[in-house]
Design a protein around this nucleic acid. Structure first.
Length: 336
DNA sequence: CAGCTTCTGGGAGCCCACCA
DNA sequence: TGGTGGGCTCCCAGAAGCTG
């Protein structure tokens, strides 16, 4: 709200909005999932500190490049740290990192794999983060609307709206119209729709909660129980029927990829191309082997009986001569 | 029923953490 | 620094299941 008052009409930039969102309570709460490979490096103090400086320097550079160094938001969040010369706290560092990542992402001049590799992120992490921030941008837009931006600051409002859309797909403004086009095999349209559905769900949930603050109704009973829960923040385990099942990084990658494409048959080639790099020798045997091991791990946790066996087999479904799919209704799957 | 696909268990080899 | 043990991935092979 403060920002809304002091930000100047017609002068807000994408970078500014991203930084604002990254420093908001919800923005801070959104995790950046690290890949296992880099997690150990992150523990090393020198490496860590070096990285912190890097993101901060990069932001500073971008701000000067845009000639926005006297904006109050930047003064508060970035410039002050320079004067103090203190070590950057973890919280700020993460916010800087998110801002840099998402800025790269929406700029679109680096492809997603490059950004993820350069920053040691788990595959798909940027998209998840982008979607989260897209939702935040929408919330910001709503607040701005309530603050009366419709009258007089329509242009700024639109800017946030466009940014929100770009965050979903990581495209430049001009690329948006292209991404809306229907291209066979392109999932952009579908993902925008999915995101809208999620947001509608959230809004509806919010309405229910605010309408019946003292209601005795337990919505939990009405809600279908989540069967599979995957958190990018915890790539070491999944939650199956409420039980934590420990998985290896390859197993997690496999199950995450299937979950992202819930209800779709992924061919063995799809899986091999995505999970194993070109120069690694891999065959479908590896996939079935890992699938078997995931099933075995799940069964070991939830109980190895005929009923469970059948159920797990039906969820991690092998479609003969076609491929593999995660056969689960949308409301029973949770990816965070 | 033959041939193909998938399941399953097990083992080799590699990597890494730990310890003396 | 080198030995050791545990964990992980990949591969193999036989059994079981499926398809045309």
């Amino acid at each position: 709200k403060n920002w809304m008052e002091y930000s100047k009409k017609g002068e807000i930039s994408d970078l500014e909005i991203l930084l604002l969102l990254a420093f908001s309570a919800d923005g801070k709460a959104l995790p950046i999932p690290f890949s296992q490979f880099y997690r150990d490096d992150d523990k090393k103090e020198s490496y860590n500190q070096g990285c912190r400086e890097n993101y901060w320097n990069k932001l500073l550079h971008l701000v000067f490049e845009q000639g926005d160094e006297d904006k109050k938001l930047y003064q508060d969040k970035i410039m002050l740290k320079k004067i103090k010369k203190e070590a950057i706290p973890q919280e700020d560092y993460l916010a800087f990192k998110k801002t840099c990542l998402l800025y790269d992402w929406i700029k679109g001049d680096k492809d997603i794999k490059t950004i993820e590799q350069e920053n040691g992120l788990y595959g798909g992490a940027i998209q998840v983060l982008g979607e989260g921030f897209s939702w935040l941008a929408d919330s910001l837009m709503e607040i701005a609307e309530n603050e009366g931006w419709r009258k007089g600051r329509e242009e700024d409002l639109n800017k946030i709206k466009i940014l929100s859309k770009r965050l979903i797909d990581g495209v430049e403004e001009e690329g948006l119209s292209l991404s809306r086009m229907h291209i066979p095999g392109n999932r952009i349209q579908e993902r925008i729709k999915e995101e809208k559905d999620i947001q509608e769900d959230k809004t509806q949930k919010l309405i229910v909660e605010t309408e019946n603050p003292n209601s005795n109704l337990k919505p939990k009973n009405l809600k279908p129980k989540t069967v599979l829960e995957i958190s990018l923040h915890r790539p070491d385990r999944i939650i199956f029927m409420g039980e934590k099942v420990e998985v290896t990084s390859t197993e997690f990658s496999l199950i995450h990829l299937l979950a992202k494409n819930r209800g779709k048959i992924l061919t063995h080639n799809d899986l091999l191309d995505t999970l194993w790099t070109e120069n690694e020798y891999s065959t479908y045997v590896q996939i079935t082997s890992h699938l078997y091991k995931i099933r075995r791990a799940i069964l070991k946790t939830i109980g190895n009986n005929k009923k469970n066996k059948k159920r797990v087999k039906d969820i991690l479904k092998v479609v003969s001569r076609r491929g593999v799919m995660l056969n689960l209704e949308e409301n029973k799957l949770k990816i965070s």
